[in-house]
Each structure stands twice: as structure tokens, then as C-alpha cells.
Simulated assay, not measured.
Amino acid sequence: MLKAFDTLFNKRDYAAAERFWSDRYIQHSAHIAPGRDGLFDLVRSLPDTLRYENQLILAESDHVIAHGRFSGSGRPAAWIAADVVRFENGKLAEHWDVLQDEATAAESQSGLPMFGDRFPA
């Protein structure tokens, strides 16, 4: 999953990314059009500054959950994401996400950052 995310979101290598995503990919995100093409088209529409960073990854059976940050998308705040992926035949087959704008130190009720050990600049 981490190699797939790096290939698509950071390297923007769409041909290589096709090896990781099923051609029958099911997309449950409210922010992304259906299928692999919907995801790839979304990434194509975003600035080249888009970056994905991972902090934590958990796997059980054919499901993986990655806690990460999507920054450089042109939005006012980075998105902190919990991406849930189901694998089938070694490829990303289905996806759900939970997204939240990254809080600054002034916005954080807990006084702790949402990602890593520092607040965004």
C-alpha cells in the first residue's frame, strides 16, 4: 500500500500505479469519482506539490488502514486521513477514507498535533 501511494500521489507515475490498483477498483470516498480512473483523474487535477506522508499502518487479513497526511493540494489545510483499503489478488480493490483538516496549535483542544510530533507551520 505504501509503495502504491508513493507511486501515485508523490511520483505521479500513472502507468506504474496501474500495477497496484485493480481495474475493478471500488471507491467509497465522497471526494473521489468511481473507480481507478476516478482516483487517477483526481490526482491529475491536483497541483504537482501534492504529497502523501504515512505515520502508521495496520493490517489484518486483506484490509489495511493507513494514517497519513495529504499536503500541497492547494487547500488551506492538509488533510489527515485514515485510508482503509481492501486487497484482492495483491491489488488495491476497494477504498474508504476518513478525512479531517489538520489543526494548527491554536485550533487544537488537546494541545497535541494530529500527525507526527509537530504542528504544521
Results as ranks from 00 to 15, higher is better:
residue 29 S to Q: 09
residue 47 P to L: 12
residue 44 R to W: 07
residue 41 D to A: 15
residue 34 P to D: 14
residue 9 F to K: 03
residue 115 F to Q: 08
residue 10 N to R: 03
residue 24 R to Y: 06
residue 74 G to H: 07
residue 21 W to Q: 11
residue 100 Q to P: 00
residue 3 K to R: 14
residue 19 R to S: 13
residue 71 S to A: 11
residue 24 R to A: 15
residue 120 P to R: 06
residue 17 A to D: 10
residue 22 S to Q: 12
residue 33 A to I: 00
residue 24 R to D: 15
residue 31 H to K: 09
residue 120 P to D: 05
residue 83 D to N: 10
residue 25 Y to L: 11
residue 63 H to G: 01
residue 111 G to K: 02
residue 10 N to Q: 03
residue 109 Q to N: 11
residue 93 A to N: 04
residue 1 M to E: 10
residue 42 L to M: 10
residue 89 N to Q: 13
residue 117 D to Y: 00
residue 7 T to H: 11
residue 32 I to E: 06
residue 103 A to I: 06
residue 29 S to Y: 03
residue 68 G to C: 08
residue 109 Q to D: 13
residue 14 Y to S: 08
residue 105 A to Q: 13
residue 4 A to M: 07
residue 47 P to C: 10
residue 52 Y to I: 08
residue 77 A to Y: 10
residue 23 D to G: 04
residue 41 D to L: 04
residue 76 P to F: 06
residue 65 I to V: 15
residue 96 W to C: 13
residue 26 I to S: 06
residue 12 R to S: 02
residue 60 E to I: 06
residue 78 A to L: 10
residue 57 I to W: 07
residue 120 P to Q: 06
residue 73 S to Y: 00
residue 119 F to H: 07
residue 100 Q to D: 07
residue 54 N to P: 10
residue 71 S to H: 01
residue 60 E to Q: 15
residue 107 E to A: 14
residue 95 H to K: 03
residue 57 I to C: 15
residue 102 E to G: 04
residue 38 G to M: 03
